[in-house]
């Protein structure tokens, strides 16, 4: 089943000026995308790239300034209610009522969708099991850890059995272990056929979860494709990372450029990246040039390298 679940053409979001002295701010500057049913789709980019604004428009809580947007075949401008009834939303800030219990948070949310108390109870039991929170059901939300809260937010977003699940920075602020637990849950949802759309500024997250993604920067889409396609197109197979002693990097870069390897060299504040087909061969070449890096690491190219190649900047500063 490969039908379109959401589609945008020339989508723009401009916010009015906050006060008389400031100018209107264009967060999303004319983007096109098509989301297929059943896929996991990612909006990747640094903070301020326009990812969250895009998500808010898809979620029908923020009307587009220009362009066309269709979600579930409907127009958000006229059918916001009907679309939102079929969406699941996981906001970045969890947005749980911390004074209510875990189960009460699901009850309230289920009621917003007009579900009967009995149906909510039934689904809440299943969802708490899915979110590994069954033994926390009666606890107040403010007693939960960050990872538990995020899992509860995901459980809550599933109460209406959504066709499309929107996740805004789902693992930001979580420790590595909590992230892996969350990825596992999201992967299960994907296996069950739920369409996932997520924003992230973590490359590993995008690589783990997304079938397809777009890279956003400054309100525009700068590249799109599967993680493997993007890496193949915008980076080399391997990357050699070299760290030098303080003050020695500039001289090393100079030497490498003069050697004319034909490979792309990127300078980061703490290390240099050598994009090459064969990392070990490149390291041998560096040694042959008389370079003495403090550490040397050969790795596969990642989406981080794609972003760096496209924008000249790293994702997480």
């Amino acid at each position: 089943m490969s039908d379109v679940i959401a589609q945008a053409t020339g989508l723009v979001k401009t916010y009015p000026p906050r006060d008389k002295r400031s100018a209107p701010f264009t967060a999303v500057d004319g983007i096109d995308f098509t989301l297929q049913r059943g896929e996991a789709f990612g909006f990747l980019g640094p903070n301020g790239a326009g990812k969250s604004s895009t998500m808010r428009m898809i979620a029908c809580v923020s009307p587009p300034t220009a362009g066309t947007l269709r979600v579930l075949g409907l127009d958000p401008a006229t059918d916001g209610r009907r679309i939102r009834a079929r969406l699941g939303v996981v906001p970045q800030d969890d947005a749980l009522d911390s004074e209510l219990s875990v189960r009460e948070n699901l009850l309230i949310y289920g009621r917003y969708f007009g579900l009967s108390t009995r149906l909510i109870d039934e689904r809440a039991t299943q969802l708490l099991d899915f979110a590994q929170l069954t033994d926390k059901a009666a606890e107040r939300v403010d007693a939960l850890s960050g990872g538990m809260r995020r899992r509860l937010t995901i459980a809550r977003s599933l109460i209406n059995e959504p066709e499309l699940l929107l996740l805004d920075e789902p693992t930001t602020g979580l420790d590595p272990q909590a992230r892996h637990v969350l990825w596992d849950r999201l992967f299960r949802l994907k296996q069950q056929g739920v369409t996932l759309v997520l924003t992230t500024h973590y490359m590993d997250e995008a690589e783990q979860l997304c079938d397809r993604l777009v890279v956003m920067d400054g309100g525009k889409i700068v590249a799109q494709g599967s993680p493997a396609e993007l890496i193949a197109k915008h980076a080399t197979r391997e990357v050699l990372e070299l760290r030098f002693g303080i003050g020695e990097q500039a001289a090393a870069v100079e030497k490498l450029r003069q050697a004319r390897t034909g490979d792309r060299i990127e300078e980061l504040p703490d290390r240099l990246l050598w994009y090459t087909a064969e990392g070990d061969a490149a390291l041998a070449a560096a040694h042959a040039l008389g370079l003495t890096p403090v550490t040397a690491l050969v790795r596969r190219a990642s989406l981080e390298d794609v972003f760096l190649a496209l924008t000249g900047r790293t994702l997480v500063d």
Binding site: A59, V61, G80, R81, R84, A95, Y109, Y112, F113, G114
Partner: peptide
């Protein structure tokens, strides 16, 4: 914000 992300306007 939670309520207005559901069918509520």
């Amino acid at each position: 914000p939670v309520a207005v992300s559901t069918p509520l306007e």
